[in-house]
Write a protein that binds this DNA or RNA. Structure first.
Length: 473
RNA sequence: GCUCGCUUGGUGUAGCCCGGCCAAUCAUAUCGGCCUUUCGAGCCGAUGACAGGGGUUCAAAUCCCCUAGCGAGCACCA
């Protein structure tokens, strides 16, 4: 953040549009702001920029879902507001701005004005007197126009060399009522650049972070700040984030469509690049925050490697995740000789957590790739060495040296009779298999490590099967 | 078309404002070794980058110019 030493308190805001649950890209803002707040005793506002009841229509559930996502990341905004509660404030500022000669009402249609603007020519409404503008604006506020009939424009510089800054729209009419009952009566809505500009000043925001798509916003808002004699906050623009490892596009509307079409089970489908999905997979918010913070705030577009998130998460959960065996597509083999049970450790780094006692029975399941060729040995982890003879595995009783010498692979296994059917949901689809009986003792939200496969979160124990979500290797 | 911005290894990042300490930092990734009854973790090692070209300077990743590539805005979306 630039010039932090010049402020007593760094005040930042995250300004989501509540038009759906968050995907991974959305959390970059709260992650970075939240992290900064914690490091430098900053202040965080969550302001819902819900000023478009029509094309980016707010989703009433999203307000809470977004706050929930922020909490999941580990942050707590100091204040939460909704722009749709603050219309009167925006109107007041608009009136003041009109008095200052900074705005005028305009009834040009979009195409007409666009043409004039691109030629650097003013429209006839620009020279209206203040009284007319004021009364027309009140008529806008009172809802006397229909959508498209009248807007309030900021008077900037109609010949500005950057056409994007010329006399932009501050308020427009929207016929569709806002979904929030409290705001449903309003028809005259501010545009983002106006609303956001007013609010950033009203809340004493010192540092704004936003995407490069809003590069021109500050330049537009600067005209308003100039009229009011305000000082513009410090600003950081950053590029877009892409996430590798996902087939599904990171776009609220795309995900929404895929869910509607049944391609995805919901917002928490493991294949969806959403916060709900990561959460269900047992990935900690902190891991996401760390990875996001590492991306920095460069203006170029960046790609977040999920492996980076996984590495962070592994650090966080490895120590407490108990070990379990899970065999995918098990091949059943009779087991001849050897002990009746195995006692592998609950966690190899923490002997004091004890052992898992796995009954062996007369046969076990191993993964197809782990079945050794006839006559060759494998070491059943936590149990001992066996040799593949004809169609069975025969206990040989050799010492661990055969593994140390590199001759024998160590593989995981489960008893054929007493194992639990498990469906492991992954980004690449569901895997069926069997886990050792001890899995029944874990509850929803527990994160375990399936040895030689990876970490997973226990989702539920159903009548037919236990469901787990795969986090990462 | 007009305007604004960006470009450091596979990925991300530090450095760039205020040129030398940068034969370029750290992380992740990949590969190899040690350790290990797992995947992981740990320890050790390796791989690998200043978009290209000019200029200024004793000295350029850093300043200037050009080229290329990428991105954004020019909405009564956020």
């Amino acid at each position: 953040m630039p010039n932090v030493e010049e402020y007593e308190e760094i005040r930042m805001r995250v300004a989501p549009n509540p038009n759906g649950p968050w995907h991974i890209g959305h959390v970059r803002m709260p992650a970075v702001i939240g992290e900064y707040k914690q490091r430098h005793h900053g202040w965080m506002l969550c302001r819902f920029d819900d000023t478009d009841p029509e094309t980016k229509r707010p989703d009433l559930d999203a307000y809470e879902e977004i706050l929930d996502s922020i909490a999941y990341l580990g942050f707590d905004p100091d204040e939460v507001v909704r722009a749709s509660d603050r219309l009167e404030t925006y109107y007041e500022h608009a009136r003041e701005l009109i008095e200052l000669g900074g705005a005028y009402t305009c009834s040009c249609n979009g195409e007409t004005f666009s043409g004039l603007k691109n030629d650097g020519e003013a429209c006839p409404h620009r020279e209206k007197d203040t009284e007319t503008t004021l009364s027309e604006f009140e008529a806008m506020v009172d809802g006397e126009y229909n959508s498209g009939e009248m807007v309030l424009r900021i008077r900037t510089d109609i010949e500005h060399k950057n056409p994007a800054l010329r006399d932009w729209v501050a308020f427009r009419m929207v016929d569709t009522p806002h979904p929030r009952p409290e705001a449903a009566g309003y028809r005259c809505w501010p545009m983002l650049d106006f609303q956001s500009g007013i609010d950033d000043h009203a809340f004493g925001i010192t540092h704004i972070v936003r995407g490069i798509d809003l590069q021109d916003s500050a330049k537009r808002q600067a005209f308003v700040y100039e009229y009011f004699g305000w000082e513009y906050p410090e600003i950081v623009h950053w590029g877009h984030v892409q996430i590798d490892a996902y087939d599904v596009a990171m776009s609220t509307s795309t995900i929404k469509e895929l869910i509607a079409e049944g391609e995805l089970d919901g917002w928490d489908d493991p294949r969806a690049p959403t916060i709900a999905s990561l959460r269900r997979r047992g990935i900690r918010g902190e891991a996401i925050v760390d990875a996001m913070v590492e991306l920095g705030t460069s203006t170029s577009n960046v790609e977040l490697a999920m492996s980076s998130v996984y590495a962070k998460n592994r650090d966080l959960i490895d120590d407490e995740a108990d070990r379990l065996f899970f065999v995918r597509d098990g091949v059943e083999k009779p087991l001849i000789g050897g002990p009746d049970a195995a006692e592998p450790p609950v966690h190899p780094d923490h002997e004091n957590r004890g052992t898992r006692d796995i009954p062996v029975g007369g046969a076990i399941l191993v993964e197809p790739d782990d079945v050794p060729p006839n006559g060759k040995r494998i070491w059943l982890k936590g149990y001992g060495p066996v040799r593949h003879t004809r169609d069975a595995l025969e206990f040989t009783g050799e010492g661990i040296d055969i593994v140390r010498n590199g001759d024998v692979d160590v593989v995981h296994w489960v008893p054929a009779d007493e194992s639990v059917p498990v469906r492991l949901r992954t980004m690449d689809g569901d895997l069926k298999g069997h886990a050792e009986p001890g899995i029944a003792g874990y509850n929803t939200d527990d994160v375990v490590q399936f040895e030689r496969i990876g970490f997973a979160r226990i989702d539920r124990h159903g009548a037919e099967e236990t469901v787990a979500y795969f986090a990462h290797p």
